[in-house]
Computed example of a mutant assay.
Amino acid sequence: MSDNNEKIVFTTEDGEAFEFFVLEETKINGKNYLLVADEIEGEEANALILADVSEEESEEAVYEVVEDEEQLAALSKVFTELMEDLDIEING
């Protein structure tokens, strides 16, 4: 990812909007994943790993939070390797 971290807005099914910074992205087995956080700096930032669940022909991307603990642990390792200075703590 570039140093100017892209900021994106996610909208829930209820219409509630949340802004996140994209820290890193990767593609594994043909599926896109994003590591996002509500803050770029600070130890209290909340981070999420999101999986792209969009239909191929969809114009808008649809992401879901990765909640499966095994998948989350594996993806955390991948993102940690991609971002050497990142320390991801999994709460679950």
Rank of each mutant, 00 (worst) to 15 (best):
M1E: 13
S2H: 11
D3Q: 14
D3M: 13
N4G: 13
N4D: 15
N5L: 14
N5G: 08
E6M: 13
K7L: 15
V9A: 14
V9C: 12
V9Y: 03
V9E: 14
V9G: 04
F10M: 15
F10I: 03
F10D: 12
T12C: 02
E13K: 13
D14S: 11
D14Q: 11
D14G: 01
D14Y: 04
D14W: 01
G15Y: 11
G15L: 07
G15W: 09
E16R: 15
E16M: 06
A17S: 15
F18N: 09
E19G: 09
E19A: 12
F20H: 12
F20L: 09
F20Y: 15
F20P: 03
F21C: 07
F21S: 12
F21R: 05
F21L: 10
V22T: 14
V22M: 05
L23F: 10
L23K: 13
L23V: 07
L23I: 12
L23N: 05
E24P: 02
E25R: 10
E25L: 01
E25I: 00
I28S: 08
N29D: 11
N29P: 00
N29G: 02
G30M: 02
G30N: 10
G30T: 01
K31G: 00
K31W: 00
N32V: 00
N32H: 04
Y33M: 01
L34R: 02
L34S: 00
L34Y: 03
L34K: 01
L34E: 00
L35M: 05
L35N: 04
V36N: 00
A37M: 02
A37S: 15
A37L: 01
D38R: 04
E39F: 05
E41K: 10
E41P: 00
E43K: 04
E43T: 05
A45Q: 08
A45C: 06
N46H: 09
A47R: 14
I49G: 04
L50W: 02
L50K: 03
L50C: 04
A51Q: 14
D52M: 02
V53N: 09
V53D: 12
V53F: 05
S54I: 04
E56V: 00
E56M: 01
E56H: 02
E59W: 11
E60S: 15
A61K: 15
A61L: 06
V62K: 14
V62W: 03
V62Y: 10
V62H: 13
Y63V: 06
Y63A: 07
E64L: 07
V65M: 10
V65A: 15
V66L: 08
V66C: 08
V66N: 11
E67G: 08
E67T: 12
D68F: 09
E69N: 12
E69Y: 11
E70S: 11
E70V: 12
Q71I: 08
L72C: 07
L72H: 07
L72S: 07
A73Q: 07
A74S: 14
A74R: 10
L75E: 10
L75T: 05
L75D: 08
K77T: 10
V78R: 09
F79K: 05
T80H: 03
T80V: 00
T80W: 00
E81V: 03
L82H: 01
E84H: 04
E84W: 05
E84A: 02
D85N: 12
D87A: 02
I88D: 02
E89C: 04
E89T: 13
E89Q: 10
E89D: 10
I90H: 01
I90C: 01
N91K: 09
N91E: 10
